[in-house]
């Protein structure tokens, strides 16, 4: 169903040669699920709401803590102790009332993830642990839904857009993935917003039918980007052999 877009709201991005009214319309008709509403997820939700993605669902059961404020842009001291997903729904609805924002106060796990991502066009990774990422990867490949991995640690961020059947999945690129999280080495405050920006750009490209840019590695301290165009691994247990062990374990 065609929905009318507010050209005044988006007039600056409609002037960009790579973009168009048809592409804005396509974003308006898209649904994204963001798993995790912290440093990465809240920044990505903010950017996608402002860009005009029509339906944004944010899944998180955490509450806002003082230690979240340094790397997030929407939470304030008044929000401490409140639920991340609900605060994001409230604030993003005030930023763009022409789209649908839904906060879902739950934790994605193997029992509910397929239901949570049902009928979504793309999944965004806003998690802080590898176990949930591997679960997202399994749900993505099994249900043929693209997802955009992003991770941050220290001063380094990584992003990779994954389209099942077309690009490598997260398990194509490493035989073992460390379970350490940002709690081990911290995250510099500015990093998540930059990596979220890269993640959102990859998300928008995929929603518009364009090819993602491979594994992108960014070092905020060195201001250095690198890109690896890794190919799909035919022997990958997930996307090659369709074994979804993290959904089944």
């Amino acid at each position: 169903m065609k929905q009318t877009i507010n050209k005044e709201r988006y007039k600056k991005q409609l002037l960009v040669p790579e973009f168009s009214e048809q592409k804005q319309q396509k974003l308006q008709q898209s649904t994204v699920v963001i798993i995790g509403g912290g440093g990465l997820g809240s920044n990505s939700a903010n950017l996608l709401a402002r860009t005009g993605v029509g339906t944004i669902k944010i899944i998180d059961d955490d509450i806002i803590e003082l230690s979240n404020l340094h790397r997030t842009s929407l939470f304030t001291e008044d929000d401490i102790g409140k639920t991340k997903s609900m605060i994001l729904e409230e604030k993003l609805s005030m930023i763009n009332s022409e789209i649908t924002i839904k906060g879902i106060n739950t934790k994605a796990d193997k029992n509910n993830i397929e239901e949570l991502v049902h009928k979504t066009d793309i999944i965004l990774d806003g998690t802080d642990n590898i176990k949930t990422r591997l679960l997202i990867n399994d749900a993505s490949v099994k249900n043929n839904i693209p997802w955009v991995y992003s991770g941050v640690a220290g001063t380094i961020g990584m992003t990779m857009g994954i389209i099942p059947g077309k690009t490598p999945c997260i398990r194509c690129i490493s035989q073992n993935i460390s379970s350490s999280s940002n709690s081990d080495q911290g995250t510099f405050s500015i990093l998540p917003s930059i990596v979220a920006s890269i993640q959102c750009m990859e998300t928008i490209k995929i929603l518009l039918g364009e090819k993602p840019s491979g594994l992108i590695i960014y070092d905020i301290w060195k201001q250095c980007f690198e890109q690896m165009n890794i190919q799909k691994n035919p022997a990958c247990s997930c996307c090659g052999k369709h074994s979804f062990e993290f959904l089944e374990e």
Binding site: I130, A153, G157, P168, I173, N182, M228
Partner: peptide
């Protein structure tokens, strides 16, 4: 292409080593 590390290297192969996937959020 990511390959099993038990695979043999041949002359002319292009190898790349990158740091592990980062997992914080």
């Amino acid at each position: 292409m990511f390959t099993n590390l038990n695979e043999k290297i041949k002359e002319g192969d292009n190898l790349t080593i990158a740091p592990p996937v980062v997992s914080g959020g």
